[in-house]
Nucleic acid binder design. Structure first.
Length: 561
RNA sequence: UGGGGCGUAGCCAAGUGGUAAGGCAACGGGUUUUGAUCCCGUGAUUCGCAGGUUCGAUCCCUGCCGCCCCAGCCA
């Protein structure tokens, strides 16, 4: 492989990578340790993929390692199903955390000890204020908050109350442990943030061992420190939390001093990436589940047929900055096409069949023609495709009264059947309603393989399948879930969803070699797009997902009129 | 009106004192047994705006404008 070929696989640089390199070169950091810290309350999506690629990518590039750590501090929302799916998705994306699988819940005892330490230092207190009262005391964006009446309890009293919280003496919401920082801070996160709350719910991993749980701010940075994370990379909305992150690191006897860095999260046109909206799509039944092929989840993209490599390439191309961004879906689709063009074997499939009878072809006869598996890859070889008197072609490849720029089949016109023969349309058969139901054609036996000995040319090559040999299948075509580039999901989803995001075609005719199709191995249906066997398939019932359509310049010409 | 972050082409994104990389999209043209792929070509007198410093500013200074995030006992 040449250096040029290699170069394309390297992620471009970015400001976080620069920081890491500087820290390593200056010896401020010995070994790079990053982490990907999902909360197991949903499935991973393409936005997480960006973070995964960044964190695992940095670790790999600089010879460090990346931890997979579940931020499982809220048993009210978290489930084992998500813990499992997240691991599967990260692995599928091509990353390996090795021995470094961690859970914030593994640190609960240590975290609890540090909470007592803070109390002992006079830096935390138990508050009796209700959630509503706390909100009132907190002030607003422009007005400072005021101290809770319980802010100055003694260390002894706080310790006793906190221990009772742990012991289960109180009901949910009755007490909360707060940091004692500054109720007048311009940064609302510093206005005595809650550290521990009471939740009487079983935890997926710790069961009923605890009824108080640390919140994100009290768990995250300390977990980083415990694991020796050197660069804690998160998204922009946590920048306001950094002073708090640092405050805990400074005021607790933690074993390391991790640093937090923020980058802007990924946004994609024609879809949503907020966990809330994704959950809503699933719960309200707008999609079939988390892995519906229209979903921007990793599991949805995987089922759709998007290769992990294409997703990684996409993440490398979008860059890492602090600018708000909305990436066009076209870029993701480009990455998929670019990869699949080199990898996907070509096959012929007719999605909207129109019957063609070759009148001068002997009845009952069959012959095999050689079709190339990938014109861009000689090593992909070729395969035999059966040909006979009755065929199916794509309905769109015939027009009875074609416009000037339409090159495909029309009455009296000759076109090439890919890898087969030239045929000429001699007659059009319609039903009572006037719909074309069959074409009568003649073929030129001299053009076997697709070339005319006399050198005559045709302006179009169309795909086909032999009616007798074809296997029928269902094909699901997908369009964006949302009609608008940036859907407004404040209101009801139903109003902004694309009603045509799924089209099911039930009478598709595929060339026989497709009986061996496997899910996870996309093929190109020539002239149409890339398709992948869906897991809903069973023996004798083939169901294909359209991964992405081929670029279609004819559609553009047609649209222009 | 508080705090934080950000403004370079339709969408991303380099460059950060020496005269605007690259990718996607779009649009032309060539090749083609996929109207695919591939190849070639076309974009910013200008870097949110206005001043200032400088021989010279996207880059430094000042002011202004715009967008995003924060008032969960969510993460």
């Amino acid at each position: 492989m040449s250096q040029d070929e290699n170069a394309g696989n390297e992620a471009p640089s970015n400001f976080i990578r620069d920081i890491v390199r500087d820290d390593l070169e200056s010896d401020r950091v010995g070994v790079l340790i990053t982490r990907f810290p999902p909360e197991p309350n949903g499935y991973l999506h393409i936005g997480h993929a960006k973070s995964i690629c960044l964190n695992f990518g940095l670790a790999k590039e600089f010879g460090g390692h990346c931890n997979l750590r579940f931020d499982d501090t809220n048993p009210a929302k978290e489930e084992q199903e998500f813990i499992d799916s997240i691991q599967q998705d990260v692995r599928w994306l091509g990353f390996d955390w090795g021995e470094h699988l961690y859970f914030a819940s593994d640190y609960f005892e240590q975290l609890y000890g540090w909470a007592e330490h803070l109390i002992g230092e006079g830096l935390a207190y138990v508050d009796d204020l209700s959630a509503e009262e706390m909100r009132e005391y907190r002030g607003t964006l422009t007005e400072p908050g005021k101290n809770s009446p319980h802010r100055d309890r003694s260390v002894e009293e706080n310790l006793e109350l906190f221990r009772k919280m742990r012991a289960g003496t109180f009901k949910e919401g009755e007490k909360v442990l707060r940091a004692k920082i500054d109720m007048t801070s311009g940064n609302i996160n510093l206005r005595d943030p809650a550290l521990y709350r009471i939740i009487h719910a079983p935890h997926p991993r710790t069961g009923d061992a605890w009824c108080i749980y640390p919140n994100y701010d009290f768990a995250h940075g300390q977990s980083d420190a415990i694991e020796g994370v050197t660069h804690s990379v998160c998204t922009l909305e946590f920048a306001d939390h950094r002073p708090l992150y640092d405050w805990f690191i400074e005021n607790l006897p933690v074993p390391a001093q991790p640093k937090q860095y923020e980058f802007s999260r990924l946004n994609l046109t024609h879809t949503v990436l907020s966990k809330r909206a994704l959950i809503q799509l699933v719960d309200e039944g707008h999609v079939s589940g988390w892995d519906d092929p229209r979903m921007p989840t990793i599991s949805g993209l995987r089922r759709r047929g998007y290769p992990a490599e294409a997703i990684r390439d996409f993440c490398a191309r979008v860059g890492v900055t602090k600018q708000d961004n909305v990436i066009e879906m076209a870029l993701l689709e480009f990455c998929v096409r670019e990869l699949l063009n080199t990898q996907a074997p070509r096959r012929m499939a007719v999605l909207n069949p129109l019957k063609v009878v070759i009148e001068n072809y002997p009845e009952g006869e069959t012959e095999e023609l050689q079709a190339i598996n990938n014109p861009g890859d000689e090593t992909a070889g070729s395969r035999a495709v059966p040909f006979s008197r009755e065929l199916y072609i794509e309905r769109d490849d015939f027009m009875e009264d074609p416009p000037k720029k339409f090159f495909r089949l029309a009455p009296g016109r000759e076109v090439r059947l890919r890898y087969a023969f030239f045929i000429t349309c001699t007659d059009v058969i319609k039903d009572d309603a006037g719909k074309v139901v069959e074409l009568r054609c003649t073929y030129d036996p001299e053009t076997r393989g697709g070339n005319a000995p006399d050198g005559r040319k045709v302006k179009a090559t169309i795909h086909w399948v032999s009616a007798e040999h074809a296997i029928s299948a269902e094909v699901r075509e997908y369009e964006p879930l949302f009609s608008e580039e940036e859907p407004d999901i404040k209101g009801s989803l139903a109003e902004v969803l694309n009603p045509d995001s799924l089209t099911v075609l039930t009478d598709c005719q595929l060339e026989p070699s497709l009986v061996d199709a496997k899910s996870g191995e996309p093929v190109q249906f020539e002239r149409l797009g890339y398709f992948c066997l869906d897991r809903d398939s069973s023996a004798g019932n083939h169901i294909f997902n359209r991964v992405v359509a081929l670029r279609d310049s004819w559609a553009k010409i047609k649209a222009k009129g």
